[in-house]
């Protein structure tokens, strides 16, 4: 990867984060919406502290997955045909564009996960003995989910059903991330940590990066 590649990737990531900073979709919509979802669970199943602390980590990652998908379809990540023409003519490497978009989404997803983690910790009284693993699990979840979101959003770009379709495309494919994230954190209680799951996540992240870079060119062609 040349300097030019990373220069373009960082420019795209910076553009996306700048746009998001002005629009505030993650801060003002996704985080409150996710927090309400976490609040709804005890209301629906009853306030039994044992049950809540047992299912809390799982609920946290369900919310991260279902609501985190929305970062891929946030309004400021969607480009008009004119914007896509421009960026193509500027001579962008499609793989750099994929990388940049993924970096921006991953950063936003990490912020989202930290916020959701804090809310879940407070609401569910979680046992945090396994949470040291979060330092590994959260970034891997963020990158994996961002990769799936970026590919799916490009695939569904400028169709009327795009924003509704992307969650359907991403969610089933993100199941390894969900399972690995919850199992890593919970396995600490049983066996004091298990590297299998983080390794699986890392493999998923790597494979998706390869697929995303390889398919970036055909997806960039506007017609």
């Amino acid at each position: 990867m040349s300097d030019r590649f990373w220069q373009q990737a960082f420019a795209v990531a910076r553009r996306d984060l700048d746009r998001e900073r002005r629009a505030g979709e993650v801060t003002w919509v996704m985080i409150p919406f996710g927090a309400i979802a976490l609040l709804l669970v005890p209301l629906a199943i009853g306030i039994n502290q044992d049950v809540l602390s047992r299912i809390g980590t799982g609920m946290l990652f369900v919310v991260v997955l279902l609501f985190g998908v929305l970062t891929a379809v946030r309004r400021t990540s969607i480009e008009t045909p004119e914007q896509r023409d421009l960026i193509a003519l500027l001579g962008i490497d499609p793989a750099a564009e994929f990388t940049g978009k993924t970096m921006a989404s991953a950063f936003l997803l990490l912020v989202f996960q930290i916020a959701m983690g804090a809310v879940a910790l407070v609401l569910y009284g979680l046992d945090i003995s396994g949470w040291a693993w979060m330092i590994v699990v959260m970034p891997l979840t963020a990158v994996g989910l961002a990769e799936l979101g970026t590919v799916s959003a490009s695939v569904a770009a400028s169709t009327n059903a795009g924003p509704a379709l992307v969650p359907l495309l991403v969610t089933p494919l993100a199941i390894p991330l969900l399972l690995a994230a919850t199992q890593t954190v919970e396995s600490v209680d049983r066996e004091g940590g298990n590297l299998t799951w983080p390794v699986l996540m890392a493999v998923v992240v790597l494979v998706l990066a390869i697929v995303g870079v390889a398919t970036a060119r055909p997806l960039q062609e506007t017609r």
Partner: peptide, 9 residues
């Protein structure tokens, strides 16, 4: 004919 600009920037 349509500007290729980002309105939030």
């Amino acid at each position: 004919h349509k500007p290729a600009l980002y309105p939030e920037l």
